[in-house]
């Protein structure tokens, strides 16, 4: 198992000019980078991050688009994977932060928490490449090669849960920009506003 913050720190060294959809890793990624190419979307509607990443990758084929998805989101929208594989954006890098639980609701296990092979599902859905990592050393060693090769690629990462039990209304908001501002900032930076 890895720490999400640790995973993101390793990735940051190889990020380049990629657009980063930080997903469930957003709170940690904010500490690393919060530019117009960073998309801390929060949770517009669960299960949709992979679709958003696909759309953005298709729209910007000359930019690498990196998504940090979660297993709860993936399970809610498994059907997105064949669509992504069919469209096959070569610039799409689909990382999964799998902590095996619904962390924001108190840590209840997701269905099949210990059994689901997400990289296997991605591969069977048509992703040409898929990897799984549980140890930070292995991830750190393989990441440059993964990012150097064309996508779409799926990278399942086992991470430690960071369970939140504070009532939602009392949680400290970590995002500095509203979701629509995040999108507006990106469009301006890309020159498509």
């Amino acid at each position: 198992m890895m720490h999400t913050a640790e995973v993101l720190k390793v990735f940051a060294e190889h990020r380049g000019d990629a657009i980063v959809i930080s997903g469930r890793g957003g709170r940690h990624w904010m500490q690393i980078s919060d530019t117009a190419l960073d998309l801390p979307l929060g949770d517009p509607a669960m299960g949709g991050h992979s679709g958003f990443g696909l759309g953005l990758a298709l729209a910007q084929p000359n930019k690498r688009v990196v998504l940090f998805d979660s297993e709860g989101d993936i399970l809610m929208s498994l059907g997105q994977l064949p669509t992504i594989a069919e469209q096959a954006p070569a610039n799409f890098y689909h990382f999964l932060l799998d902590n095996e639980v619904y962390a924001t609701t108190g840590g209840q296990p997701v269905p099949g928490a210990k059994q689901v092979d997400y990289a296997g599902i991605a591969r069977a859905s048509g992703y040409p490449r898929a990897h799984s990592f549980t140890e930070p050393e292995d991830f750190s060693r393989e990441l440059p090669g993964i990012l150097a090769a064309p996508g779409p690629v799926f990278v399942a990462l086992k991470v430690l849960p960071e369970v939140e039990n504070t009532p939602i209304g009392q949680r400290v908001r970590w995002r500095k920009r509203t979701t629509d501002k995040v999108v507006g900032d990106l469009r301006s930076a890309l020159g498509v506003a």
């Binding site: 998309l39 517009p44 509607a45 299960g47 949709g48 991050h49 992979s50 679709g51 958003f52 990443g53 696909l54 759309g55 953005l56 990758a57 298709l58 729209a59 910007q60 929208s77 059907g79 997105q80 064949p82 669509t83 069919e86 469209q87 999108v183 990106l186 469009r187 890309l190 020159g191 498509v192």
Partner: peptide, 26 residues
């Protein structure tokens, strides 16, 4: 015209949002 087929209609919304964010007109 690019066709993006989805397996569930709700998926169309997030894909569309991504396309729009990247400057397309879906």
């Amino acid at each position: 015209l690019r066709l993006v087929g989805v397996t569930r209609e709700g998926h169309a919304c997030s894909i569309t949002a991504g396309l729009y964010a990247g400057g397309r007109k879906p």
